[in-house]
Design a protein around this nucleic acid. Structure first.
Length: 312
DNA sequence: TGCATTTGACCCGT
DNA sequence: ACGGGTCAAATGCA
């Protein structure tokens, strides 16, 4: 049990958990290379991609939750309990007859796909939204704003997002996206964003989520180049690396673009590289050095052994 | 005038 | 019962 651990040890334990999650992510990004190479069509590659990406996405989510950033939000994604509730709700059709259509009569979502990001700006995210509500949230001094896709009725798009300021100075917003857009009104490809932890700040966040609009692009950074497979199939496609500030790193990619030449392998390489990069940042901020070769060092660390060393 | 936003009411899950 | 999510009438604005 960790209940008697000091905050420092708990922090270190959480970081090690994050490292373990990211190590799992590395494994997930490794094995698809062979599988994807055997795919004969784009369609089969995309199916394979989906099989890999979902658990890989879970790795990132778990990593974020390890760092204590509103973990309850992420429980909705991976918990089997939630999936069971979804099946229950879909199988149990609500046949209650309402006497009349009343204002506020609706069925609440039970199992939306959720992605959460923390951002310092509320600029255009590539989609058009319509605000439909605003609520005061208990234990929060800022109101939460509710948006849905403009094409909810025209195209039946179920995407919604919630925006809530979480810090005043500087303004930091938590944006929670529910459901994916089905309206195809995105102006840009989707992408993965990673807000790297600041090694000097124990409260900094590791966050990987989806966004739809590229920020100001300065250029490609070699930091996302796979270290152990240099130049293999990368970067030859629609892949950009933006750097707006020390906290904003992102990759642009479009796995569903019909015209793309199966960007799966280079994309998996990028994701693997991100796993390594984030893991290295966590490692160096925990142990005060980045001199280690991550691939050589980390597999030798066992969680229990390491935590006991920290406790002694 | 038409569209977007505001806001109180209403409903659902816990 | 309560808090959070959604609805839709009222309001604002170009």
């Amino acid at each position: 049990m960790e209940s008697s651990s000091s905050p420092e040890i708990s922090s270190a334990i959480n970081r090690i958990k994050a490292i373990q999650e990211l190590t799992q992510g590395q494994i997930l990004t490794d094995w698809p290379h062979e599988m994807l190479g055997q795919s004969e069509t784009i369609e089969s590659s995309l199916e394979s991609f989906a099989d890999v990406f979902m658990p890989l996405s879970g790795v990132f989510v778990n990593t974020v939750s390890v760092f204590g950033t509103s973990s309850s939000d992420f429980d909705n994604i991976s918990s089997d309990q939630t999936h069971n509730r979804l099946e229950d709700s879909t199988n149990n059709v609500n046949t209650m007859i309402r006497p009349k259509v009343k204002r506020g009569c609706y069925k609440r979502r039970k199992n939306p796909m959720i992605y959460t990001e923390v951002t310092f700006n509320l600029g255009d995210d590539g989609y058009t939204w319509k605000k439909y509500g605003q609520k005061t949230i208990i234990n929060s001094k800022h109101e939460r704003q509710y948006y849905r896709c403009t094409y909810k009725y025209g195209k039946g798009c179920k995407a919604t997002k919630q925006v809530q300021m979480i810090e005043d100075e500087p303004s930091k917003y938590k944006i929670t996206y529910h459901q994916q857009h089905t309206c195809n009104n995105s102006k840009t490809p989707c992408r993965i964003i990673s807000d790297y932890p600041n090694p000097k700040d124990d409260d900094s966040l590791v966050l990987i989520s989806f966004e739809t609009k590229p920020r100001k692009q300065i250029g490609f950074s070699s930091s996302v180049r796979p270290r152990h497979k240099p130049n293999k199939g990368f970067p030859s496609l629609n892949i950009k690396h933006d750097k707006v500030s020390s906290l904003d790193h992102c990759i642009t990619w479009d796995p569903f673009a019909q015209s793309s030449k199966v960007p799966l392998e280079p994309m998996m390489s990028i994701m693997m590289s991100y796993v390594l990069d984030v893991r290295e940042d966590i490692f160096s901020s925990t142990f005060g050095t980045s001199q280690y070769e991550i691939e050589d060092v980390l597999p030798n660390y066992d969680f229990a052994v390491f935590s006991s060393e920290l406790c002694s």
